[in-house]
Design a protein around this nucleic acid. Structure first.
Lengths: 186, 186
DNA sequence: GATTATATATATCAATCTGATATATATATG
DNA sequence: CATATATATATCAGATTGATATATATAATC
């Protein structure tokens, strides 16, 4: 999916600044996708130049102006067109997997060259992290204002349910099978 | 993990060409990590220049020479040092998650702007893909020669078991809950 | 039998993206 | 009172990808 479509999609949930879009990537979207500031800000500028979004500058005494972007009708149209195109490309591509870079799995793969105590800590920290993630996905209380819209999306309940189920399976598997990883060669 | 450490780690399983390393990323490693030719070839050249690997040129009548790299003692030492450093960094970083870019989840997220029939195909193809993946992870028969070594790593049985469990959970969840995604706004 | 597609094999590079840094201030923490 | 973190935008060197070039063998399709 193009960065433009993704930014428009997030702005379709309500007006937002670049900083707040980044917060969505760091927060609820962090397990599925991310873009850096170096991509977000130039993308918003180019979307504004082409009238896909409008921008209101909120001067905040002494802090840099907060630029709040609102998606336009033209922007909504482009977003829908692009999403349909992206879905069709996804289907045609034959590539239905996700792009993953997992430091954790690389460490597992080469674990025989890593001291047992170190690998133990790696596994313990991963388990702790997953437990935290599980809580996050199950948590149903209030969230900060700028993250509220995404939380209320219907598709997001489906995704959160899926993520919770996957993490629970992962945790159970690791508890039952981590003894298989003992013993290093060197 | 640095690309150098990763390439050395794969060469520690046995001598290999750059092309064969790429095949590992396309095959058994594809769900955990990947590097492109544009990264692999220059990395191997620099590892060779610094004597971390040696290289034997197998001239094959009319095809480009196959350059088979073998990890040296110096290379094994660097690999182990780096792996220990990487594991320690992983622990200290506080960042225990994986880096993921999932076109599928983005399409789910914005599914209300995508026609029902299109999303249906997206979900069907994803399910088909996951069923295939599951078979792959459970398959215990013979694999092509250059992929044999990684298959026989102890840690890989742990990883394959985990992956199978996760995919099964994902498939079950999607079967039971995909009805929740029906109905689009537009 | 001819053509097309796929596999083997390395190499290079424009375009893209990230991670770091710069700038400036407010607020929380120790 | 000093330090760290959060808000907020912007930029860019360096790293990475995805595409392309080169060359041939083999398998599939027509």
């Amino acid at each position: 999916m193009q960065k433009e479509t993704l930014c428009l999609g997030l702005l379709s949930l309500g007006p937002r600044s670049g900083y707040e879009i980044k917060q969505m990537f760091e927060g609820p979207l962090s397990d599925f996708y991310s873009l850096s500031f170096g991509t977000i800000y130039p993308t918003l500028n180019s979307l504004q130049a082409d009238k896909y979004v409008s921008c209101k500058q909120h001067s905040q005494s002494k802090k840099p102006d907060k630029k709040v972007y609102t998606i336009t009708k033209k922007g909504m149209d482009l977003m829908k067109d692009n999403l349909l195109g992206d879905a069709s490309s996804y289907i045609r591509s034959g590539n239905f997997g996700d792009q993953i870079k997992s430091e954790f799995f690389l460490l597992l793969l080469f674990s025989k060259y890593i001291p047992n105590e170190t690998m133990n800590t790696v596994l313990n920290e991963r388990v702790l992290y997953l437990r935290q993630k599980l809580e996050q996905f199950k948590y149903d209380g209030p969230v900060p204002g700028n993250l509220d819209a995404i939380r209320n999306e219907k598709s997001v309940s489906f995704i959160r349910g899926l993520a919770s189920a996957l993490i629970e399976t992962g945790l159970n598997y690791m508890e039952k099978n981590r003894h298989l990883l003992k013993k290093k060669i060197n």
